[in-house]
């Protein structure tokens, strides 16, 4: 069988398939369906320094081949994670990565610092792109200067692999990716959700309590693929691609466009076993094309 392993910074992934933050809980939610150790990594739910109640219900709307969410990073805080949740997930045999969010630079740094202390968390994904948090979140991700500032500050406080999750809700994602690379990120992951909206014509009201929300699912895949391709050409650090991946073929497309690894998000809601199917499907693809390593297809798009 072909070698599926890839490297992101100091992080070795047994295969390029991870699950996306906010779609896979802490991994254990899916343990009845799949062997979690078969995954390259699990990126757990967005974690902030202070606990967050999240946005009011309703938080979800289905859209054509996609969905909007407005969860608002509901979580019990980094300390609760470290004390109560981490002990229950630390022995899962894959890369357990924490998605870290904040509302200002200090809160990003503080949360990253708490996670840094946890031996079995080899990396964080810094979320500078959540569209559902009024204060901060995406505000950092939409300006190259603000993105660089928060990444630089976290880089000083955090010693392990630092992946920065980028927002697609920008004019020029390449300039932000470059700014984040210069500020010391080991990798960028993209895309976070696209800002969207849904209306109920009968009630004349928005469906989401927050009016707008983040769009995900197969409908966003072409946008994600384009952005991954653009960014991968412009930066030297590895790119993690996500956005609407439903099948192994979708994942291979992202790898060809230049992603070193991929994340599966909304697809987990449709098929709880999809992530391991994508792992198997990538292996089949490599075998079918007589390739020894997944690295042979990364960035292999022939244009």
């Amino acid at each position: 069988m072909a070698d599926l392993s890839v490297r992101i910074g100091n992080l070795l992934l047994k295969n390029p398939v991870m699950t996306a933050s906010g779609t896979f809980g802490y991994g254990v939610e899916y343990a009845d369906f799949i062997d979690l150790s078969r995954l390259g990594g699990i990126i757990v739910k967005g974690t902030t320094m202070a606990p967050r109640e999240g946005n009011p219900y309703p938080r979800m709307a289905e859209t054509p081949m996609g969905m909007l969410n407005a969860v608002g990073i509901q979580n019990k805080g980094a300390r609760y994670f470290a004390e109560k949740i981490y002990p229950t997930i630390k022995d899962i045999d894959t890369n357990m990565i924490v998605n870290v969010s904040g509302s200002d630079i200090d809160s990003y740094v503080a949360a990253a610092g708490v996670i840094d202390e946890l031996d079995r968390i080899p990396a964080i994904e810094l979320n500078i792109s959540c569209p559902n948090v009024r204060q901060g979140g995406m505000a950092f991700g939409v300006s190259a200067k603000a993105a660089a500032e928060v990444v630089e500050a976290v880089r000083k406080a955090y010693r392990k692999t630092l992946i920065v999750k980028l927002s697609p809700n920008v004019t020029d994602i390449v300039s932000i990716a470059k700014a984040v690379e210069d500020a010391g990120a080991d990798s960028v992951s993209l895309i976070n959700t696209l800002l969207g909206m849904a209306v109920n014509a009968e009630t004349r009201k928005p469906i989401l309590s927050t009016v707008t929300g983040g769009m995900s699912g197969p409908a966003v895949k072409p946008v994600a693929l384009r952005m991954v391709w653009q960014v991968a050409q412009a930066v030297k650090i590895p790119v993690v691609g996500l956005g609407g991946i439903m099948t192994a073929t979708d994942a291979v497309e992202f790898l060809l466009a230049g992603a070193t690894a991929v994340e599966i998000g909304t697809a987990n809601f449709v098929d709880p076993t999809v992530s391991v199917k994508v792992v198997d499907g990538i292996a089949d693809y490599l075998q079918r094309h007589d390739m020894k390593s997944v690295n042979e297809i990364i960035g292999g798009l022939e244009t």
Binding site: T23, F24, E29, Y30, Y57, N69, Q74, T266, N268
Partner: peptide, 11 residues
Amino acid sequence: ACGLGACLCCV
């Protein structure tokens, strides 16, 4: 969405 306590949409 998920039905498994992962997405936190149905709170």
